[in-house]
Design a protein around this nucleic acid. Sequence first.
DNA 1: GCATGATCATGC
DNA 2: GCATGATCATGC
Length: 456
Amino acid sequence: MDSDVRYSLESADKRSVVAVAQNLVGKTLRDVARIDSLDSFSSEEDPFEAAIIQYFANSSKPLCEYDGAFERALSIKAFPVKIGRNGQLVAKDRLVLGKIGFSDILDEPWETSLVRKQYGKLLLLAYLYEPCTNPVDYIFQFADFWAMPDEDAYTIQRDWETVVGKISSGRAHEISSGDTLYLEAYAKDGLASGTVPQPLSDIPAIPRYWAFKKSFVMSLVHRMSDAQKISRSKLQSTLPLSELVRQHFDKYVGYTEEDLGEIFGLTQKGKRPPKSLSALITRRILGVAEDSKILEFEKAGIVAKTIRLKRNGVPKYPMSFPKFDYCKLAVTPFEDSDFRGYLEQKYLLVIFREDDEVRNEYHLDSVLFWQMPESDIPEARRCYKEMQRRVRDGHADQSVKATENRCCHVRPHGRNAEDTCMTPYGVPVIKKSFWFNSKYIAGEIQRLNTKGLSVG
DNA sequence: GCATGATCATGC
DNA sequence: GCATGATCATGC
């Protein structure tokens, strides 16, 4: 998010925190933190949030170094969202920031107030609320620092002054949510918790909490999640996702990428097509706006990928993973590695196949949902362990080749020879990443097609 | 023709 | 500035 967030972590640390947060999206606490229940947090005020904070503390190096005090530097707020009637995410509740101390607030200026301090460092995590579900199984929908636009900050300050004004004129008992626009003094427990004294009047008042109103949280959700649902006709209203996607793509099977670019008005004659053309085509076929995420895919953690198959059924080029860090690789067991996490990625493979006659002309062929089968994980593990061994032995330059491993290999993925990463033995080596072998992917596509799971 | 290493280039 | 997807170049 914007760099103008008032935030005391260094920006590199901040990026690291955001990366940890983004890693939660599409997953659950059970997935990422291997927690089965919140029992061990049950003494906390909010066990769910406590578990999330612990996950962050364990996952982010800068946060570890903050020695548990990082809560001063950032405020993690998990809040529930649900699927609204039109299929878009909506806020479920208000977002509570903290209790209003009727006495403390009297001589506190806005600049040092709880609300002002909180909103400059809010890390918002939205999770999909499901009734009767163990919170460790809630799926996170989006996560990011919240950069508050100036116009919002101004309104929030005015709201704050309105509430403080009532307290400092002895009218805390007259506070109402209707007084304010974005920020409210929320009676969290209603009258259930009884009343408390207020400093400048004998009349007791209901205890209140600072909270962003539901409508304001709703706008946050809209701003932060640009995900859209895949379009459905009446007839398609109850179709399972895979069948829905297949039906959408079916209409366009046989067209070339150029045809589709033209059909959807994404290309102009004489102009070079955008590089992201295939990604744009996928969006159009599914009826989702260009700049939107696809809600169903976000929820299920599916990534759409275009695969161009040559006539022999082998992808034109292999699929790469993000670059790895030699020092991290040397000390991280496979089970805890980023690579292990990437292997669990679910894909929607949008497959184009090379024309039988015209070289370099690719036609839309089919779509497949694919995830690396569990039974192949040990083979990928061998690739990881072998590369790890080489790095430890001082041979980061020696990649595990595609001929050495059935599923994956290692190859350079830097900008050029100068784009290096430090090794544990102090010699920089060109950046590398793990890649799926082209032949392995070819085999998987063939396996799914012959299994009759093909769509399209 | 393929495997492997290296680099380009677009878009965020 | 960098990651990622795309592509080139070399050698067997």
